[in-house]
Structures are given as structure tokens and as C-alpha cells.
């Protein structure tokens, strides 16, 4: 085998626009985390604050999954194959929180 031929792989030039976009998403994730951190100490604890936290978490999750994991650019069938099964998680949240409430009522 001729090894000199194999090692000569010419890398393509970097796409500045694409790299800039990646750093922009990183900045969004960082800023959202900073906002969460700020809100934790400036808003009273309660349902409103928790809802804000959950929304901001979903924003971060969206950016990570769609951009970093590249799911947004996959074909529709793949996106749905991954997204639809997560409804079971929603079911589990509803079921277990209701259960937790009943356990609380029995114990306290």
C-alpha cells in the first residue's frame, strides 16, 4: 500500500458563518442559564417561578437537540420517531405527581 497517498488529505476551508452560528447558540444557552440563575434570587419561590424555569429549560433543550444534535435538519420521519415517544414522559409526570399528592395526604 502506498502510504504517502493516504496521508495527503486536503481539509476544506472552514465555513466562518457556520462556526459563528454555533457560538451564537452557545451564547444563547449561556445567557438563558444566567437568566435562570438571576431569577432564582430575584423572584419569590412559587408556581410562577417554577413555570418560568421549566419554560427556559425547554428552550435550552430545544437548542441542544435541534442545533447541536442536528435533529432539526434530519428527515421528518426521524424527528417524529424521536419526539412522539416522549409523550410517555408526560404521562409519567402526571401519574407520579398525582400519586405523590395522595401519599402526602395519607402521611401528613
Amino acid at each position: 500500500m502506498d502510504h504517502t497517498k493516504i496521508t495527503e488529505v486536503k481539509p476544506l476551508p472552514a465555513d466562518k458563518e457556520k462556526i459563528k452560528k454555533l457560538w451564537r447558540i452557545a451564547a444563547i444557552l449561556g445567557i438563558v442559564t444566567a437568566i435562570e440563575f438571576f431569577l432564582a434570587f430575584s423572584m419569590p419561590r412559587g408556581v410562577l417561578l417554577y413555570s418560568v424555569f421549566i419554560c427556559l429549560t425547554l428552550v435550552k433543550a430545544f437548542y441542544i437537540v435541534s442545533e447541536f444534535m442536528h435533529l432539526k435538519y434530519e428527515v421528518k420521519t426521524l424527528i417524529w420517531s424521536i419526539m412522539i415517544p416522549t409523550i410517555f414522559v408526560i404521562w409519567l409526570i402526571v401519574a407520579l405527581l398525582a400519586e405523590g399528592g395522595s401519599v402526602f395526604n395519607i402521611n401528613f
Partner: peptide, 9 residues
């Protein structure tokens, strides 16, 4: 979710 369940109880 187990965390949520136990915390809630």
C-alpha cells in the same frame, strides 16, 4: 420524575 414524586409526597 421520581424526585418530583417523592418531593411532592
Amino acid at each position: 420524575i421520581t424526585y418530583g414524586f417523592l418531593r411532592y409526597s
